[in-house]
């Protein structure tokens, strides 16, 4: 168990990569503030199951990441627990596929709100707690689209490029407080988000990749576990591609 007695915050826990991160962190002994937008019975049952199976505490926290007000009350709730926060994983995000000329201003704003502004503000709040305790690991889930610039990804890719840059700046500004900040750039990963892409696009990309299959959410989650753990104590300011060798 790599995260025994650590307390972490994970956003977007309801499905996909976020859910896999929640499961892997729990199985590695971490206590989790599990953030999602909406309450659901299915999610409550998952939390009960995981916390019992791995003997960890999981507190669900519900807020809409695009509302600063809701986020502020969520942070207050976390603060009342009065426990050190060892890691923050900004995973919640939305996707958008549209050619550059077809991308609308409303969509640009919406995607940047969820994928960039929300994690930015949340990290401001949480890193304040980390500065006080002089330690912490911040992990942002970006995308290879934020590095490679794939067709149809001008908005989504730009929002992820923004997160990658923000991560590097955080590592530069907060390193002296013992805070590390890294991002993970997943390639094509088997989630709902992937099914929004055309099948030919997926199979074409896989043809030129090294490991010719899509990634599993758990494989992204394992890298997050590594970065949150003490195994990565000297790694900061990096973006790690977990993409099976996409070209």
């Amino acid at each position: 168990m790599l995260l025994e007695n650590k307390n972490v915050i994970i956003t977007g826990c309801n499905r996909g990569i976020g859910r896999a991160i929640l499961e892997r962190f729990a199985s590695n002994g971490a206590n989790v503030f599990a953030c999602t937008r909406k309450e659901s019975r299915e999610f409550s049952e998952l939390i009960d199951k995981l916390s019992e199976k791995y003997s960890v505490n999981i507190f669900p926290i519900y807020f809409d990441a695009s509302s600063i007000e809701e986020m502020r009350s969520a942070v207050k709730l976390i603060q009342t627990a009065k426990i050190p926060i060892n890691a923050l994983i900004n995973n919640a995000g939305i996707t958008y596929n549209a050619l550059f000329q077809m991308s609308t201003i409303d969509k640009i704003k919406e995607v940047f709100d969820v994928n960039f502004v929300s994690p930015f503000i949340l990290t401001q709040y949480i890193s304040k707690l980390m500065i006080r305790q002089k330690s912490g690991s911040i992990i942002n889930i970006a995308s290879t689209a934020g590095i490679d610039g794939n067709s149809g990804r001008s908005v989504y890719g730009a929002s992820k490029a923004a997160i990658i840059c923000m991560t590097k700046v955080i590592s530069a500004e907060l390193g002296e407080f013992g805070i590390r900040a890294n991002s993970i750039a997943p390639g094509m990963t088997d989630t709902d988000m992937l099914s929004s892409m055309s099948e030919t696009l997926i199979s074409d990309s896989l043809k030129t990749s090294d490991i010719k299959r899509v990634g599993k959410p758990s494989e992204i989650a394992d890298t997050a576990v590594f970065l949150a753990s003490d195994l990565a104590s000297y790694i900061t300011g990096q973006v790690i591609r977990v993409d099976g060798g996409l070209k």
Binding site: S171, A172, G175, R180, G187, D210, I211, G215, K216, E219, I220, D222, T223, V225, F226, L231, A232, Y234, I235, T236, G237, Q238, I240, R241, V242, D243, G244, G245
Partner: peptide, 23 residues
Amino acid sequence: SILFLASDMSSYITGQIIRIDGG
């Protein structure tokens, strides 16, 4: 970090160069 790359935790990571430099 070598341990991570050697283990099955990194099963989808290949062809990468990872800096370990304290920032």
